[in-house]
């Protein structure tokens, strides 16, 4: 790959919660138009890593760069303002709000009627429906429907469409396919590819090798909080990836690699066993 400035770059990022070290010395680049699959066993630190990217946590040490410029997020809003959008597992977080209203939470369109500024429901609904239909979800055609009435895949799609609509440059998806059936999951994967095609950098967390292989350009594997592998599509076989995702248990040499890595971090208590 030619040397271009990464949209988002981590350099030697560490994160600990009090005495518990969760992330060790992570250096990672995320490029535009690329899907980065973040893999690893339960408790490996994937969610912690993306929460750090999204401004939920502050790194204990290390640096983050966007377009080569050093950034530091005090709160999730800061990351969102820079174009980092996180979609949570169940997509819509406001089950009892309508599609139009939830799409615009915090950035409601208004119109003037006399001295009053009124929530513009029509514009909100139309924009939301149009945004999600552009992603091929034509079944959503009424902005007055409640989020809670959509299927899991539709909710994910809507959340992704929302992020893209508001100009996200980095899209973070934490296990978006976890609770979905085969058909719904493939819907979401297709939308991930569509977002990538539009030039977004996508960070995609999954426990399913098939899903990772289907959309990933770039793979990063976390084992007990350390970056155990970082490779491009086609550089490793499906079996190797599966082993890595299982926490590297099948790869003895990798384990020792990690251990030596730990030793260079004196003062850190041994990571919790999983």
């Amino acid at each position: 790959m030619t040397e271009k400035t990464a949209v988002l770059e981590l350099r030697n990022v560490n994160k600990s919660f009090g005495p518990i070290d969760v992330l060790h010395d992570i250096s990672l680049k995320v490029n535009a138009g690329e899907v980065l699959c973040l893999l690893g066993d339960n408790g490996a630190g994937k969610s912690t890593l993306i929460k750090t990217l999204a401004g939920v946590h502050k790194p204990t040490s290390g640096e983050m760069f966007m377009d080569g410029e050093k950034v530091s997020f005090e709160r999730p809003k800061d990351a969102a303002d820079r174009g980092i959008a996180t979609v949570h597992q169940f997509g819509g977080t406001f089950p009892l709000m309508t599609i139009g209203r939830s799409f615009f939470v915090g950035v409601e369109p208004t119109k003037r009627i006399g001295p009053f500024r009124i929530f513009d429901r029509k514009t909100a609904n139309e924009t939301a429906v149009k945004a999600v239909q552009e992603f091929g979800i034509t079944r959503i055609d009424d902005g007055d429907r409640l989020i809670g009435g959509l299927s899991g895949g539709e909710r994910q799609s809507l959340a992704i469409a929302r992020a893209v609509h508001f100009g996200a440059r980095v899209l973070i998806l934490d296990e978006p396919t976890a609770a979905l059936g085969v058909k719904q999951a493939s819907h979401v994967l297709r939308i991930v590819l569509e977002a990538k095609k539009r030039g977004l950098a996508v960070i995609f967390i999954t426990h399913q090798v098939t899903h990772a292989m289907a959309v990933g350009d770039h793979f990063a594997v976390l084992i007990r909080g350390a970056l155990a592998a970082n490779f491009m599509r086609g550089e490793k076989s499906r079996e190797e990836i599966t082993d890595l995702m299982a926490g590297g248990e099948a790869l003895a040499d990798l384990d020792t690699e990690i251990e030596s890595h730990m030793e260079t971090h004196e003062g850190h208590p041994p990571p919790p066993a999983h």
């Binding site: 977080t93 406001f94 009892l96 915090g106 500024r117 929530f119």
Partner: peptide, 14 residues
């Protein structure tokens, strides 16, 4: 009618 209403619903949702 106001955008604040949307905030109130959103706060109650999550």
């Amino acid at each position: 009618q106001s955008r604040f209403g949307n905030w109130i619903f959103a706060m109650g949702g999550d």
